[in-house]
Design a protein around this nucleic acid. Structure first.
Lengths: 230, 230
DNA sequence: GAGCTCATATTGTTCAACAATCCTGCAATA
DNA sequence: TATTGCAGGATTGTTGAACAATATGAGCTC
C-alpha cells in the first residue's frame, strides 16, 4: 500500500517529459517561424507534397504538423482544397483585441507576479524599444512592443494564459504583415507604452490598466481603419 | 483591378467552413467526451491499436486525434511509451486557478457583454443549480456551477477566451474525477455563486469581481488540501 | 533479491495505394 | 466573344503494411 502511494506520487512527476519534439512538432516549429516572420504570407497554400519534399518528411507527418498550426489559428484547412496560411479578417482582429483587452489590463492590475522587479523589467523593455526607434529599426520597435505586452501578460503567472498570449502575439504578426509592416502601427505606440510604465512606476496600477485598455481600443480602431481603407 | 479587389474580398468570407469534421476530429470528439465524463480515467493508457480497433479508424488517424487531445491537455504523450489520459497535478491545479482568477473577475467587471439580460441569465443558471441541490442531484449542481463560470467568462465576448475557458472547464472535470466526484467540491459553492449574483443584481460589478477572486482562491485551497490529504 | 537476456507489445514514421474532390485547360456552342 | 461542359491532372483524406526503435515483462541464474 505504501508502495502503491509512492508509485502513484512518482507517477505524477513528469519524469518523461517530451523533451525530444516529435517529427510533426519539429515541422510545425519550422513552418510557424516562416509564417510569423512573413516568409510564408497569408493565403499561401501549403501542400503536403511540396512541404513534405522540402522538409524531408512523409505526408502523414506533414498532416500532423498542419493540424498543430491549424489549432493555433496560424493556418486554416479547407477540406479537399488544402491548407493555407491564415488570413486574419476584421472579425479576427476584433476578437484578438477583445482578448487582449480582457487579459492585459487584468494582468497589469491584479497579476500576482507584479513587483518592483517586474516594473523594472518592463522599463527595460520600453527603453530598449526607444533605442530601436533612435536607430530607425522598425522591426526592433515592433518586437519591443510585443515583448512589452508579453511581459505584461506574464504578470498573471499562468502558463495557460501565457500560451494563449503567445498565440495572440503570433496572430498579431500575421495582421501586421497584412498591413505591409507599416511603421505607423508600431512606432507611435511606444509613447503609449511609456505612459503606462510611468503610471506603474508611480504606483498607479489601476490607472495603468485603464490606459492600456484605451491604448488597445485605439490600436484596434487604427488597424480596422487601415483594413477598410488601405 | 476591381476584379482583383472583389476576388480578395470574397476570399475573406469563410465560404468553405469546415462544417464536416475530419475523421481525426470525430475521434477526438468521442474520446474527449469519454475523458470529461469520467469513463476514461486519469492515467488510462490509450493505445493506438485498441482505440483504432474500437472506433474503426487507422492508426494514423488515431495519432492525429491524440495530437488534438494532447494540445488540449486532456491527454499526455510519453514518447515511446504511449498516450495517457491526463492526470492533473497540484501544479496544474494552481495554474488552472491562476488562469481563472485572471479571466473570470475581469470578464465580470469589464466584459463588454455585461447587461441586465446577462445578469438575468446568470440568475437562471444559479437558480437551476439550486433546484438540482434540492433534488440531491450532485452532477446537476456541478454542471450548473460550470455553466455559471462559463457564462461569466463569455461576458468578455472573445472567442479565444471562450476556447481557453472550455479547455479549463474540461480540465476541471478531470480534477473533480480525481477527487472522487465528492459533492463537497460542488454543493457548498452554490452559495458563493448566489452571493456573486446578488452583488451583480445590486449593480456592484467590482464587488462581485472581488468576491469571485476570493471564491476561486478558497476553492483552489480546498482542492489542493484534498490532494495532499485524501 | 538483483541482474541479465530474450520475447513481445507498442510507438514513430515512412511508403504505397485508392477513392473522392477540386481545379484547370480545352473544345463546342450560342 | 462569352459561356458551358467535359476530361485529365493535382491534391486531399484515409487506410494498411512495413520496419526500426524503444520499453516492458517474463524467465533464468547467481
Amino acid at each position: 500500500m505504501a508502495n502503491r502511494a509512492l508509485s502513484e506520487a512518482l507517477r505524477q512527476i513528469p519524469t518523461r517529459v517530451s523533451v525530444q519534439p516529435s517529427a510533426a512538432e519539429r515541422v510545425a516549429d519550422v513552418l510557424r517561424e516562416q509564417i510569423v516572420n512573413g516568409a510564408l504570407r497569408s493565403g499561401t497554400r501549403l501542400t503536403e507534397e511540396t512541404i513534405g519534399a522540402a522538409l524531408g518528411f512523409s505526408r502523414n507527418t506533414i498532416r500532423e504538423a498542419f493540424a498543430l498550426l491549424i489549432a493555433e489559428r496560424l493556418a486554416a484547412r479547407e477540406p479537399n482544397r488544402g491548407v493555407f496560411v491564415a488570413t486574419p479578417t476584421a472579425s479576427d482582429i476584433r476578437d484578438l483585441y477583445a482578448t487582449r483587452r480582457l487579459i492585459e489590463p487584468a494582468a497589469l492590475e491584479h497579476g500576482i507576479g507584479f513587483s518592483h522587479a517586474a516594473v523594472a523589467r518592463l522599463r527595460e523593455v520600453v527603453d530598449a524599444a526607444h533605442a530601436c526607434r533612435e536607430h530607425e529599426d522598425t522591426a526592433g520597435v515592433a518586437q519591443g512592443n510585443q515583448e512589452f505586452h508579453r511581459t505584461v501578460a506574464r504578470l498573471a503567472e499562468s502558463r495557460r494564459v501565457d500560451q494563449l498570449m503567445e498565440g495572440v502575439l503570433a496572430e498579431m504578426r500575421l495582421v501586421f504583415h497584412l498591413m505591409g509592416d507599416d511603421p505607423g502601427f508600431h512606432v507611435p505606440y511606444l509613447d503609449r507604452n511609456e505612459a503606462i510604465i510611468r503610471d506603474l512606476e508611480a504606483g498607479d496600477r489601476a490607472g495603468a490598466a485603464a490606459a492600456l485598455r484605451a491604448y488597445l481600443s485605439d490600436a484596434e480602431e487604427h488597424l480596422l481603419g487601415a483594413l477598410h481603407h488601405p
